Computed example of a mutant assay.
Amino acid sequence: MSPLSLTLGYVPGATPAKWARTWAQRHPDVPLQLCAVAAADAPDAVREGTVDVALIRLPADTSELSVIPLYDETTVVVVPSEHLFSAADSVDAADLAAEPTLLPLDDVVDWPDAPGIPVEHRPETTEDAVELVAAGLGVLIVPQSLARLHHRKDLTYRPIAEAPSCPVALAVPAGPQSAMLEEFIGIVRGRKPGSSRGQAEPAPKRTAREKTLAKQAARAAAGKVGRKPGRTGRGRR
Rank of each mutant, 00 (worst) to 15 (best):
Glu127Phe: 11
Ala98Pro: 01
Ala114Ser: 07
His121Ala: 10
Ile117Asn: 05
Val108Lys: 00
Val108His: 00
Glu127Val: 14
Arg122Thr: 07
Thr126Asn: 14
Pro123Gly: 01
Asp110Gln: 08
Arg122Trp: 01
Leu103Asp: 07
Trp111Met: 04
Pro115Asn: 04
Pro115Lys: 01
Pro112Cys: 08
Thr125Val: 12
Pro112His: 05
Asp113Ala: 06
Pro115Val: 06
Ile117Leu: 07
Pro112Ser: 07
Asp106Asn: 13
Leu102Val: 11
Pro123Trp: 05
Pro118Phe: 05
Ala114Pro: 03
Pro100Gly: 14
Gly116Glu: 01
Glu124Asn: 04
Arg122Phe: 00
Leu105Met: 12
His121Trp: 06
Ala97Lys: 06
Leu105Phe: 15
Glu124Pro: 00
Pro115Ser: 03
Asp106Tyr: 11
Asp110Gly: 00
Trp111Arg: 02
Leu102Asn: 03
Pro115Ile: 06
Val109Trp: 00
Thr101Lys: 14
Val119Asn: 05
Glu124Tyr: 06
Asp113Trp: 02
Thr125Tyr: 09
Asp128Asn: 15
Ala98Ser: 13
Pro123Tyr: 05
Pro123Val: 12
Thr101Ala: 15
Ala129Gly: 08
Thr125Asp: 01
Glu124Gly: 06
Ala97Asn: 07
Val108Phe: 00
Ile117Gln: 12
Leu105His: 09
Pro100Ala: 11
Ala98Met: 12
Thr101Cys: 13
Ala97Gly: 02
Glu120Asp: 11
Glu99Thr: 14
Val119Lys: 07
Pro123Cys: 07
Pro104Ser: 12
Ile117Cys: 00
Arg122Val: 02
Leu103Tyr: 14
Pro100Met: 13
Pro123Lys: 03
Asp110Thr: 09
Ala98Gly: 11
Leu105Cys: 01
Val108Ala: 01
Ala97Met: 07
Leu102Ile: 15
Pro112Thr: 09
Ala114Arg: 13
Pro112Phe: 05
Glu127His: 09
Glu99Trp: 11
Asp128Ile: 11
Glu99Ala: 15
Thr125Ser: 14
Glu124His: 10
Arg122Ile: 01
Pro118Thr: 04
Asp113Leu: 05
Arg122Asp: 01
Leu102Trp: 14
Ala97Cys: 04
Ile117Gly: 00
Ile117Val: 10
Pro118Gln: 01
Glu124Lys: 09
Pro104Tyr: 13
Asp106Ala: 02
Ala129His: 04
Gly116Tyr: 04
Asp113Asn: 03
Glu124Gln: 11
Gly116Arg: 01
Leu102Asp: 02
Asp128Trp: 12
Pro118Gly: 02
Ile117Ser: 00
Arg122Glu: 04
Leu102Thr: 14
Ala129Pro: 00
Pro112Asn: 05
Glu127Asn: 13
Leu103Ser: 11
Pro112Ala: 05
Ala98Cys: 06
His121Met: 09
Val119Tyr: 03
Leu103Asn: 07
Thr125Ile: 09
Ala97Val: 12
His121Ile: 09
Pro123Gln: 05
Leu102Tyr: 13
Asp106Trp: 14
Asp107Ser: 08
Pro100Arg: 12
Leu103Gln: 15
Asp110Cys: 02
Ala97Trp: 09
Ala98Phe: 08
Val108Ile: 10
Ala114Phe: 05
Ala97Asp: 12
Pro112Tyr: 05
Asp128Tyr: 11
Leu105Ile: 06
Pro118Ala: 06
Leu103Arg: 14
